[in-house]
Design a protein around this nucleic acid. Sequence first.
DNA 1: TCGGTAAGTCACCAGGTGGTTAATTAGCGT
DNA 2: ACGCTAATTAACCACCTGGTGACTTACCGA
Lengths: 219, 219
Amino acid sequence: MRDLERTREKILSAARTEFCAKGLAGARTAAIARRAGVNKRMLFYCFGSKEELYNEILRRKSAESARFLESVSDEVGAALVQWDGNCREDPDWVRLLEWEALESGAGPVVIEETRRRLFKAALAKLRRAQEKGNVSLGLDLTQLFLSLVAVTVFPYAFPQLVRLISGKEPSDADFVARRSEFLHWLGERLALAETGVQAAPSNRRPNARVESGIRRSAR
Amino acid sequence: MRDLERTREKILSAARTEFCAKGLAGARTAAIARRAGVNKRMLFYCFGSKEELYNEILRRKSAESARFLESVSDEVGAALVQWDGNCREDPDWVRLLEWEALESGAGPVVIEETRRRLFKAALAKLRRAQEKGNVSLGLDLTQLFLSLVAVTVFPYAFPQLVRLISGKEPSDADFVARRSEFLHWLGERLALAETGVQAAPSNRRPNARVESGIRRSAR
DNA sequence: TCGGTAAGTCACCAGGTGGTTAATTAGCGT
DNA sequence: ACGCTAATTAACCACCTGGTGACTTACCGA
């Protein structure tokens, strides 16, 4: 039962768990080896160094992420909900991005060019949505895209803030439902034309946590 | 020139720098001591342990943040721009939140109750804005608040994504200008009433990166 | 002046760290 | 059966980690 490819995979799987939990500096090679059920020496035999192993993890995760980004809906509200679901089902990806933000300095990041191209494609998709009238005209699409990513990624990147603000876990069913509804509403709202005319009529009231006492004051 | 209070402050200052850069696990007590120009032994003499020193940093930063949150504008667009400015001028605060998200597990966080109350006050401020008609009615304010924080904090929490998406640093003057304009627009847009009538008329075209070829297709 | 105490110093420790050397073993072609 | 190579292992290393025991020194009240 000697199979290098198989031990490589076992190491990669254990390393992903460990790196997502502790980051590059915090992860311990001994812990990865133990989790993988493999001699520690094999990490270095297969991948050369802790950092190269880490980069391989990032490369694989980026490929996964690329596949997702390309499959996402053209409609902004639906895309937001898809993004949200993806982050929830795979919070490891968000954590890896976060570790990368904190641990790598201002220098270039792993497979920088590939990822840049990926985002450029996503921006093009957003531009097509704008041309179809699903996004307000005249908007800076770069800023918009950044904000859409922000809104979906944030709760999983800062779960402690979600707990402090909403009192619930980001994975809590009720929280997820409210969030989805909000994101859907946000997508529709962004489609409103500059004049204020509603572009995509919808009579559903998003997140109607109706408080009885609220009255609109006169302006 | 023996002055315990002064050495405490020197240690705290050095520790803040070090913890923001490397996190709790990554920071080195020896490095903090060297940066503070103080014998390493004094860290433990003054604060007991690395972790207690770290908690003291978090407590102080939270107090700063509280003062800011209370001073923020009632008008959503302006508040967004203020938030953005605050994050840009003090990216350390964002990084500390990020380290906290990654390093502390699902358990309770430092001065949890105080921070919860702080957010509750901010939410109340948002509710007042809604009552004054500056925020769309029927919106889930918890989700909205979370998203507002997300939109302002995100670029400083994930600067590498800003680089990949926009090609610029989050601190870049041009990026900051575009972002401010976008945030201002977003604040106005949230004020639109549910019917689509423009609540706060404004003829300024936000972030008009005018592309000549865009035509609105018929629906 | 002097003694007590708090502030500051120095050398050290036990337990871990990524990474390596050298030996061992399984598998395969012949 | 055998020998060669690649996969696997045990033991090890130099270095570093947070934390400490025990010492010295400045300061202050009497």
